[in-house]
Design a protein around this nucleic acid. Sequence first.
DNA 1: ACCACTATTGCGGCTCTTTGCGATAAGCAT
DNA 2: ATGCTTATCGCAAAGAGCCGCAATAGTGGT
Lengths: 140, 140
Amino acid sequence: MEIDDRLHASGRRMTVQRRLVLEALQRARHHVTADDIATRVRARHPQIDPSTVYRNLEALEELGYVTHTHFDDRVTRWHRADAQRHGHLVCRSCGAEQEVPIGLLEPLARRLRDEHGFQADLAHSAIVGVCKACANVSSE
Amino acid sequence: MEIDDRLHASGRRMTVQRRLVLEALQRARHHVTADDIATRVRARHPQIDPSTVYRNLEALEELGYVTHTHFDDRVTRWHRADAQRHGHLVCRSCGAEQEVPIGLLEPLARRLRDEHGFQADLAHSAIVGVCKACANVSSE
DNA sequence: ACCACTATTGCGGCTCTTTGCGATAAGCAT
DNA sequence: ATGCTTATCGCAAAGAGCCGCAATAGTGGT
């Protein structure tokens, strides 16, 4: 189903602003912040308010078209929902980011579901820790 | 080792402000926001600036005396580092919070360590998902 | 007790994000 | 095309957190 139809089906409207946010997200490969998007959109259309970008990301997320992930610097990053789902590892020492297959996180998700009835979304927040490189340095 | 000594050993000083932040954290049982602390401290000592509280929490964290955890709302919560470590489950639908024993998260941490050399701190960010109650409601 | 050194503070200001509100403009019916 | 309803927008302001800077005050040495 087309984006426009999905918007309409949920009682929303397609606006110029909405389309621009969407396009910016299409072009962005991965993990961009709302501020990034706002900056890109405003580069060509300065009259568009940042808050509009934030609100549109939210709307598009409710529609299931985009998703956000929390990284450690408490910055939210957005990407298209059709991208391959994956977990994120972030090093608290050097900031390096690494992606891991979602399957790796599955066992924990299953256990939380079985033992607590909790349907965890383990890709929603990055996993913070110390990466291999930094661990080696600090143990020398 | 006493807090004062640890401070000195790291080239820091013990100040009135530092002590007040520390005391506020002692009294607070769990998971308070920096703003909570600031408000409590400022109730009796209005001249203490909020930014000082933020800086002190950071300093005390580097010392290993306090820790912070990210919940799903973008507010960071702090607690004493000597408290029992545990994971957090947060429902994205109703906001309910639940604690789970850290042991539950261990298998994943071990796997990340073994397969990626990554020392994960799985208690650092809350795990977001849908709690049992909300899952039941939405499936009815 | 006094000094010098510098960690820390309070203040002002700035960034990123969210929210309230009146104005604007999609999308539907006529 | 025209009007109506109301989703959405732009703007202003607030909230959370951070940072630079000049003034203040712990600390260790004399």
